[in-house]
Design a binder for these strands. Structure first.
Lengths: 232, 232
DNA sequence: AGATAGAGAATTGTTGAACAATCCTGCAAT
DNA sequence: ATTGCAGGATTGTTCAACAATTCTCTATCT
């Protein structure tokens, strides 16, 4: 019962010890496929074929499905199966609503944030700019999301981080409905750069105000785009 | 394929049509028991005994467990079982951090909120005051939570509502570690009343500022209390 | 032609049993 | 007091079975 100072160090490594169930790994895999668009919104995932493809039993697969349904990446219709989520207009609006709350609040309190978190914001913007010069538009979108994730991370809250990660994964579902990734992502590079510079300069209130206006414009534009792309 | 105005009304009732799996109902039940404290933090829920008690198979039970683990009410240790979550000090601090973000932002934008949502805030406070005069201290705590839920609801976002509901359920885990429900909940009645009145009066900025100060005090106090109650 | 009904197939919901992998318990040995 | 080691208990995962529900296709009717 002695106090072991090194024990805490080891405890941190415990997570790497491969201690994850197959259900979780299946969920990780499916989540990735939904995010990168290999599984398009609306696709039905039957237990039988998915189970055969991944070589796991139906029960294990169902556990994985439950996780992703809870993350809103899949929807579960009783006795009908699970489908990759199709976002409605209201969903996209709502995603922006909650992101606005979290990000603006986080930026407004960014004065307390450690330097590393501020640097991460700048880094995400830089990464987006580089991807843009190389015309990798999907990567620009990814970098843009990392930017917003970094903004929320300024709050220094694990739960905020996880909430943001899930929201952004959900937002990917909207992107997959739209073609023209360049028109979709490029316009945001400049405002992102401005906001990042304001934060780096310590002018967090100005940054928050700028972000507020940014959201008004971005939300309106994306919703309009999403609506116009909607088929049926 | 005609436009049916009444079809939407019916569609809303579809959810009442009992179309829920047993796993979900088991999860609902367990969630309730965790929230009301019948299952104390740290309790181990073995698959065998829980399954026998609820008369469901292990597979179904495991699906329910997955849901509650995802909601952070249970923790799952590989090959060891599931336990009712024990919140750490950091968890309590983090819960307050994210609540602060959501609630303050929601209040700050409460000008756009419909009157019904504002009324709900007042109603929650009134309910708490009544419970206090009747010395039902646990109910005072419940009403206090409903107050905070109503504040977040001012944002008018389904996702914010759900996030708050989960966060408050998680916070219940902290309360169960503490005795003295009166000392825990009573002090907040007065500030809640003040904030509610400010919002009703349309002075949302003042309310947000007041809430900010409230959080500083409440968080410090609860964390101190939680720490002192912590056994082992 | 188009709508409707109904039989049969396919899929999901749930259970129970089985076995492997891992953890826990208690005792012996040092 | 700590370590090593069996044996038992619990979880992880699969499989097979059946009930409940939905889907599909054809026959029927107007």
């Amino acid at each position: 019962m002695t106090a072991d100072p090194w024990a805490d160090l080891l405890a941190a490594d415990r997570s790497l010890l491969d201690r994850t169930s197959t259900a979780e790994r299946v969920a990780d895999l499916l989540r990735q496929r939904v995010i990168d668009g290999a599984l398009a919104p609306g696709t039905r995932l039957s237990e039988e074929s998915a189970g055969r493809a991944l070589a796991v039993s139906r029960n294990t697969l169902r556990e994985a499905f439950r996780l992703l349904v809870h993350e809103r990446l899949l929807v579960h219709e009783f006795h009908r199966g699970v489908f990759v989520r199709v976002l409605s207009d209201e969903d996209v609006i709502d995603l922006y609503r909650i992101r606005r709350l979290l990000e603006i609040s986080a930026v407004r309190r960014a004065g307390r944030a450690p330097a590393g978190l501020v640097a991460a914001v700048d880094q995400a913007v830089t990464e987006g700019e580089r991807a843009a010069t190389e015309e990798r538009w999907w990567d620009v979108g990814t970098a843009n999301m990392r930017f917003h994730e970094a903004l929320a991370a300024l709050a220094g809250s694990p739960r905020v981080n996880e909430t943001m990660r899930r929201l952004l994964a959900e937002l990917r579902l909207a992107f997959h409905r739209m073609s023209r990734p360049r028109e979709l992502h490029e316009p945001y590079l400049k405002p992102h750069r401005e906001i990042s510079n304001l934060i780096s300069a310590g002018r967090v209130q100005d940054a928050a105000d700028r972000l507020e206006g940014y959201f008004d414009a971005a939300e309106a534009q994306l919703v309009a785009a999403y609506r116009s792309y909607t088929p049926e």
